[in-house]
Structures are given as structure tokens and as C-alpha cells.
């Protein structure tokens, strides 16, 4: 599901979820990335919750589907429905809001628990144009990101800083993990990596019956 092969040249399609508290600027971030707009009064965009972007990274075509998720506290329990089967997650916090970083930590724990290491995580400190009001320390966040195997970025949707790099980097990482996935598949052994996604049918009853027969008699 991670990557769809199309003819000679590969086209990867990735699902990226955008997580973060209410007003950390998730929407501004994607709108800036996909349409290069910020707080435009004459916005023609109907919605900013589902956006797609086509990329070409080193000859590899990538279709990126960015899913914004509802970040309000009362919707917290619905998270797993959103990030099911996603390849990447962008966790956004507001550098002027300590609380929003704590939320990010919760999300990371949950994602790692539900999806393991298959998902590429990005922790993003947004609103660096408001650096004078910073309440979250750079060292702390970067140390945390490293400890959970995520990458840390600083962005400003207002000034259009760091956003392009963030998405490009994430795509590269997702391509890598997709390729690793394929290699594991290509090696013939339909083991861990692939079996994890589908339904695993363990056929142990007949085995128990014929245990004296062929398989494990010796």
C-alpha cells in the first residue's frame, strides 16, 4: 500500500497526517506549502483539510496526500482512525506555547504505539517569526526529537521559512523506508515487514491434529 508501481518509472503515493493542537498553524503550513498562500483575504481555496501535491524527487514521482486532522481536545480519541496506514506524520507545535509541545509528545507516544517504526515522524516548531515570545527551548525539543527517532524542523508559515525543506526531507525518508520495505518483500521471505499490514491467518488447528504426521514429528 505504501508505494504503487506504475510501469518503468515508479510513482510513490504517500499519506501524511498533520497532527497538532488547535491553533498552532497546521492549516497555514499546508496552505503555504501547497498553494503558497498565507492569510490571503481573497482565498479561493475551498478547504485546507485534504490537499495533494505532486513532487519529483531525483526522478521518482511522488504523490503526496496531506491529511489535516482535527486537533481539538474533544476529538483526541479519534486520532487512530485518521493516522491508520499513513506513511508519515508531521507533528506541529507553536514555539510560543509550551502546552502545544506537550501535546506533540502525547501524539508521538501514541503513533509509536499504534504504528511502530514504519512511520516517519517530523516534529515541527512553527511560528519562528515570533521568536522573541519563544517558550519552548530549542535544545529540549531537538533532544526529544532525537530520542524518539524523529526529525526536528523550525518553520514559519508567515515568512515561508523551512517548509519546503520539511516536506522534501520527509518525502526522501518515506521513499527510503518504502524502498526498504520493497527490498524486504523482494527477498522472498514474506516475513515481518509485509505480514504486519495485512491480516495474519495462523492456521494452527490442523497443525495440531496432524502433529504426528509430517511437520514437527521429529
Amino acid at each position: 500500500m505504501a508505494a504503487g508501481a506504475a510501469g518503468a518509472s515508479k510513482t510513490y503515493s504517500f499519506k501524511v497526517v498533520l497532527l497538532g493542537e488547535g491553533c498552532v498553524g497546521k492549516t497555514s503550513l499546508v496552505l503555504r506549502y501547497c498553494e503558497n498562500k498565507f492569510n490571503d483575504k481573497h482565498l479561493t481555496t475551498l478547504q485546507a483539510s485534504f490537499l495533494t501535491k505532486k513532487l519529483n524527487i531525483g526522478g521518482k514521482r511522488v504523490n503526496l496526500a496531506i491529511w489535516d486532522t482535527a486537533g481539538q481536545e474533544r476529538f483526541h480519541a479519534l486520532g487512530p482512525i485518521y493516522y491508520r496506514d499513513s506513511n508519515g506524520a508531521i507533528l506541529v507545535y507553536d514555539i510560543t506555547d509550551e502546552d502545544s509541545f506537550q501535546k506533540v509528545k502525547n501524539w508521538v507516544k501514541e503513533l509509536r504505539k499504534m504504528l511502530g517504526n514504519e512511520i516517519s515522524l517530523c516534529i515541527v516548531g512553527n511560528k519562528i517569526d515570533l521568536d522573541k515570545d519563544r517558550h519552548v527551548s530549542v535544545q529540549e525539543t531537538e533532544a526529544y526529537a532525537e530520542s524518539v527517532g524523529a526529525k526536528h524542523y523550525h518553520t514559519s508559515a508567515k515568512q515561508n521559512k523551512g517548509i519546503e525543506e520539511l516536506f522534501l526531507d520527509l518525502c526522501k525518508r518515506m521513499i527510503e523506508s518504502a524502498q526498504a520495505d520493497e527490498r524486504a518483500k523482494g527477498n522472498g521471505s514474506s516475513q515481518s515487514a509485509t505480514a504486519r499490514r495485512g491480516v495474519q491467518i495462523i492456521d494452527d488447528e490442523p497443525q495440531a491434529q496432524s502433529s504426528g504426521g509430517c511437520c514437527t514429528s521429529g
Binding site: 492549516t27 478547504q47 491529511w67 482535527a70 486537533g71
Partner: peptide, 22 residues
């Protein structure tokens, strides 16, 4: 899509996920 239109008609801004879900 109708809902997206309704939200945009009400807020004059592109709908966010929170808006859409509620």
C-alpha cells in the same frame, strides 16, 4: 464538498479539519 462550501460561505476562510469534522 457541500459542507466545505458551507463552511467557506460562513467563515470566508478555507475549511480546516476541525471545522470540517464538527
Amino acid at each position: 464538498n457541500f459542507l466545505f462550501k458551507a463552511i467557506q460561505g460562513s467563515t470566508q476562510e478555507p475549511a480546516t479539519a476541525d471545522d470540517f469534522l464538527s
